[in-house]
Amino acid sequence: MKRRTKTDTTQLQLELADGNETALKRLYDLFGERLLHFTFTIVHNRELAEEIVADVFIQTWKKRVQIASIENLPWYLYVTAKNISLNYLRKERKQKFVELEIINLPLYTIEPQAVQHLISKDFLQSITNAINELPPKCRLIFKLVKDDGLTYKETAELLNLSIKTVEAQMGIALKKIHTTIQVLIPVYARRQQH
């Protein structure tokens, strides 16, 4: 659950503006898989989602000079992915907006290196399971906010939801995770004593 900071992408933006192709590859390494999962939730076709993500990075390369002045590059990438996905759906005369309840998300994973010194693998797996048991809309919102560092407002705009809905869904997610932790702490503490 590493939250991206502005400085993570600022240097990449400057390198892109200078025409550094390696910076584009590093940007792809940072966001490619995340954007693939996101676009898949919209178009429900992995090959098409891969093509859309490639288009996002082609467009990013074409606009590399303008990219340097963008304040929130992750937000830009997600909005670009959403727009390209919706354009495809419009061309195919499919629905413009996808119901978040029917999206097919990949299972959520927590990066173990970020917390490996604090909790056991079993504890981490239990938290991951709790996140994966969330309803699809709730899990997507949690991922966009906690993993990808989007604000509630950005997440709401990206998913065509109200900020109140995003807040409510984050509340549900955090309550579920909190409940799981509250149940696990006594079990984990007993294990540590033995």
Rank of each mutant, 00 (worst) to 15 (best):
T41D: 05
L89A: 08
I52Y: 08
F57S: 10
E21G: 12
E154W: 02
E99Q: 14
E111I: 12
L30R: 15
K96E: 13
I110W: 02
R93K: 07
D147L: 01
L105S: 03
I58Q: 13
A114F: 11
A81E: 12
R34L: 07
T109F: 08
F123L: 10
L24H: 08
G19F: 03
T128P: 10
E101I: 13
D55H: 08
L30F: 14
T39K: 09
D148G: 02
L86D: 01
F31V: 05
A49T: 04
I42S: 02
L144I: 03
F31I: 04
K146T: 10
L30E: 15
D147E: 12
K121G: 00
K146H: 06
K25A: 06
L86S: 07
E47W: 00
K91I: 04
L16A: 01
P136M: 06
W61S: 08
R93I: 00
V115W: 07
E47R: 15
E15W: 03
K137F: 01
T109P: 09
L16Y: 00
V43G: 07
E33N: 14
A114K: 13
L134D: 00
Y28Q: 13
N45D: 11
F38H: 09
F123V: 13
F142I: 02
P74R: 13
R34A: 12
E15S: 04
Q66N: 14
T128Y: 01
L14Y: 13
K62W: 02
I58V: 14
L150V: 06
F123Y: 14
F38W: 07
G19V: 05
S69C: 11
E50D: 13
E99H: 10
E47L: 11
W75T: 14
Q116K: 09
L89I: 12
N83C: 06
P74F: 01
K153V: 05
N72I: 08
N132A: 08
G19H: 06
L86Y: 05
R64S: 01
L12W: 00
L107V: 15
R93H: 01
A49I: 06
L16M: 02
H44L: 13
Y108M: 13
D29V: 03
A68F: 01
P74Q: 10
L86G: 02
